[in-house]
Design a protein around this nucleic acid. Structure first.
Lengths: 328, 328
DNA sequence: TTGAAAGCGCTAACAA
DNA sequence: TTGTTAGCGCTTTCAA
């Protein structure tokens, strides 16, 4: 692989001139430019990012942190991030933390080391203290999960409102016994969705019954299956369920299908509108988050923040998608 | 952020010595070492990857190419790759080509630019000519999709055999009218799975009927739905379907559920064993590919290849997972 | 056991 | 308009 000196030599100019051509500096005569350009072609030269990055003290890499690849919710967000940053000449370093703190450290060091220019975190399990520390000296954006009253800019949806509307929908269908399948309430979104759930129940003077609130240990389908089984073991069974994630809701649907062949159907609402949610039987009523757009927005915010601009928090619109799982 | 000079100054040694401590060189006296180490601690120093990478002419980044994030098949493979390379001090640069050639170029240039040390491609739509060119001078491994008789090492499963076994399973269940939902046969795996499909039919003297072979334009659920609808419009309907991807099979299941309430069930077999496949109703019989293991293997092969070792192609075992969709 | 110095490939300030 | 040169932060050779 040729380097800039060889190009300079071949074109009979200095390395500075080659660099100018490479960076489209306006102060190069057309004649010189074309000499350099042919040398570049002839030697099939590609400027080294390593050299450029060191010199410019940037890597043009964006670190994207997510807890797991296996929840399709993240896939669409990543699409949005990737499309946006690529258009600006950046790339993404996708990092699954798997909720393992030692991984977090690796990634934070990459940023401190200038191996990544900024961070978008979608990981609810992240060490917020360390992230805030990082954010003091490096651009960081939170996507989806955020910190209330924190100093790191975020893009998200109004989880409380969405949950409220989802549960209200169940109530208006005539359900009075509504269960909640929640994840761990150490996560903000979990607390918010629970709050929305409770607000709807209170508004219609329905009691909040702890035995109908189940906390899962994760978001995999299997956790949803397990949660629903637990709920179905109650003496008095709920007639409807709100699950804080489509993956949990789909697991719940599965459990209902398996255990309740002859019983009255149980209405189910999920959250996220992952593509699989229209493939289940029945199809899943769910809260649609604008995942792709959320990714684009997070990326834009980060790029702006990297330019030194102040960025504002953004709350995107959601939508309740009504499908068969709440249509009897 | 401190640099190596500041550490050297603080510790009262030369930068060479600091570098030696950083790299655990054995020729540093314990006393000097501890002086340097405390300087590092005091200044909270992290060596810059950018400088190190330039000097060593490596980036410790592995480029992973995939066509799309939205097929969960890839998620598990990526998990395997990531776990393996992280253990060796590498990270992955995950790149969705979206089957867009201009993106491919960006990524190939990153490798040529030394911004990535090697490539694992899982993208069937990749420009194989260019990839081969790249592979002449850089480490490249193909994962899942590969080139027969090509020179790039690969890890995959025996698609033909797996398809044969899947279809044989359908035949042994008594099905004589078996449809194939295939993707575009420009992909090797599609041709191989079709070959396995045909081998099974021939072995049992069943005719191969073109009207029961449908080629989709993609692997999304919706393509499976559409394909199944087309098949159900045939005068003579198949009694069983083999789909070359779980996503297509799940779409097919959906179409069957929607259109056939009162009809005889149609048996369905998929391919990949994605986690959704046990959440459908009925659960999906499918060919399980060892996705995580495939990812680990691809990563190991690449790391070996980067060390200059010769690597052999590897064909991993698959397994037919029989579930409700072929149990009447 | 340690240090001085060259150099990885590039950009940019300054000079001409 | 172009060239010279310093330097980004690190590793490594050579010499002491």
């Amino acid at each position: 692989m040729a380097n800039i000196h060889q190009i300079a030599e071949r074109a009979g100019v200095s390395v500075a001139t080659v660099s100018r051509v490479l960076n489209n500096a306006p102060t190069v005569s057309p004649k010189t430019r074309s000499k350099v350009e042919s040398a570049i072609k002839e030697l099939n030269y590609q400027p080294s990012m390593l050299g450029r990055n060191l010199r410019n003290s940037e890597s043009r890499l964006i670190l994207v942190l997510l807890p797991t690849f296996s929840n399709p919710f993240y896939s669409e967000i990543i699409n949005g991030i990737q499309d946006t940053v690529i258009a600006k000449g950046y790339n993404i370093l996708l990092c699954e933390t798997d909720s393992r703190p030692e991984r977090e450290n690796i990634y934070f060091n990459m940023v401190k080391n200038k191996l990544a220019d900024g961070v978008i975190s979608m990981d609810p399990t992240i060490n917020m203290k360390k992230l805030k520390e990082l954010a003091e000296s490096h651009p960081v954006i939170l996507c989806s999960e955020y910190e209330e009253g924190g100093c790191i800019p975020y893009v998200t949806v109004d989880s409380e409102l969405a949950a409220y509307q989802a549960v209200k929908h169940l109530i208006q269908l005539g359900n009075e016994k509504i269960a909640l399948i929640n994840s761990d309430e150490k996560f903000l979104y979990a607390r918010q969705r629970r709050a929305g759930f409770e607000r709807a129940l209170k508004e219609f003077s329905l009691p909040i019954r702890e035995e109908w609130i189940y906390h899962t240990k994760g978001l995999d389908f299997q956790h949803g299956v397990h949660a629903m089984r637990m709920l179905l073991q109650q003496e008095e069974k709920p007639t409807a369920v709100f699950a804080v994630s489509d993956t949990l809701a789909i697991g719940a649907l599965k459990a209902i299908n398996m255990e309740l062949r002859a019983m009255e159907p149980i209405a189910v609402v999920g959250f996220d509108n992952i593509s699989f949610s229209s493939m289940t039987n029945p199809t899943l009523t769910t809260v649609s988050q604008p995942m792709y757009n959320m990714g684009c927005t997070a990326a834009d915010m980060l790029l702006n923040s990297m330019k030194g601009e102040r960025v504002e928090n953004i709350v995107l619109d959601h939508e309740l998608i009504i499908r068969e799982s709440t249509m009897g």
